[in-house]
């Protein structure tokens, strides 16, 4: 007895293929909408700002007169900011990830911490700004210094790096760990000689992506009271500073039309920095990712 009616099968074929093509078209449309908007934004920005991207623009401090204004202070300030944020966040979060994955006893408390670290990654950046304002700026009396802002941004990206580092560490197969401890290696020898080297490409990728989020972040800096106009660069981490996203944010608010073009030029510089950082991350991921 034949349960599958061949006629019916061939009749339904046409309809199935049409539906398949409709879905394919819909998904393509979704992709294109996002892509077109993004490309329009970028092209518009580049057209606006391109002519203002001059050597003078890169080497001048901010100014209330658009023809004199530049991003020198903001770029140097952002570099200072990263010089604090990068080491603090990297050491704290890679250490945390290592502890949670390799050393922490398996119990409820560990599970609770693990879950809440991923939740922290979703907390809005302005909340971290308020935290930084209370603790670093006021209680520790660091003022609106590079250090206070760097510590705040470190806290903000900490969960992101912890989670991506945890994933990288977890992707090292347990059989390799067993081989190492099975030879009498200590936990630390196994971690430092086998697990870290194997996980490092994933960890670095996560770090760069997190730092590129930090470098473009404006909200926490606004809350911390980072100045928008300054005629000096910091001499130490305790000095106040300017930052690129703050500079852009400030120009947007200016009434003179010319500042809108400076905004575009500032955005181009930020985009170039982000693009470079992401390229490095992708390069590292492709070049060093291990296969097992």
């Amino acid at each position: 007895m034949q349960l599958v009616d061949k006629d019916q099968v061939s009749k339904s074929l046409g309809g199935r293929l049409i539906r398949n093509n409709i879905m394919k078209f819909l998904f393509l449309l979704c992709t294109l909408v996002g892509l077109v908007v993004l490309v329009t934004l970028i092209v518009d920005t580049v057209l606006d700002g391109w002519n203002y991207l001059t050597w003078d623009f890169l080497t001048s401090f901010s100014s209330s007169r658009p023809e004199n204004a530049g991003v020198y202070g903001a770029i140097i300030g952002s570099i200072w900011l990263m010089a604090v944020t990068a080491p603090v966040s990297i050491i704290l979060s890679v250490g945390t990830a290592m502890y949670l994955e390799e050393y922490a006893p398996e119990n409820r408390l560990t599970d609770f911490i693990k879950i809440n670290i991923s939740n922290l990654a979703g907390v809005p950046s302005v909340v971290f700004g308020l935290l930084g304002l209370t603790i670093f700026v006021r209680q520790l009396a660091l003022g609106n210094s590079v250090l206070a802002a760097g510590l705040t941004l470190s806290l903000m990206i900490l969960p992101v790096i912890v989670v991506s580092s945890q994933e990288a560490i977890r992707s090292v197969p347990s059989t390799v760990r067993e081989a190492s401890v099975g030879m009498g290696a200590t936990k630390w020898q196994t971690v430092s000689r086998i697990i870290l080297p194997a996980a490092i490409p994933g960890i670095i990728t996560g770090i760069i992506l997190a730092l590129s989020r930090a470098i473009g972040e404006t909200a926490p800096l606004v809350v911390l009271g980072v100045p928008v106009s300054l005629l000096v660069t910091p001499n130490s981490a305790l000095d106040t500073f300017q930052a690129l996203p703050m500079q852009i944010y400030n120009w947007v608010k200016m009434p003179q039309e010319e500042f809108q073009y400076l905004t575009a030029a500032g955005i181009i510089i930020l985009l170039i920095i982000l693009f470079l950082m992401n390229s490095v991350a992708i390069y590292i991921r492709n070049k060093f990712s291990k296969r097992y």
Binding site: V176, E178, S180, M183, R193, R291
Partner: peptide, 28 residues
């Protein structure tokens, strides 16, 4: 574990060179 070595069910070399794999124990 230094005196009692182990070979596992599935080959599990380290993602390192052959030399570094074999030298691993001695280096440790």
């Amino acid at each position: 574990r230094t005196k009692v070595g182990m070979v596992f069910q599935n080959p599990n070399p380290f993602p390192k060179s052959i030399y570094d794999n074999v030298a691993y124990g001695a280096r440790v």
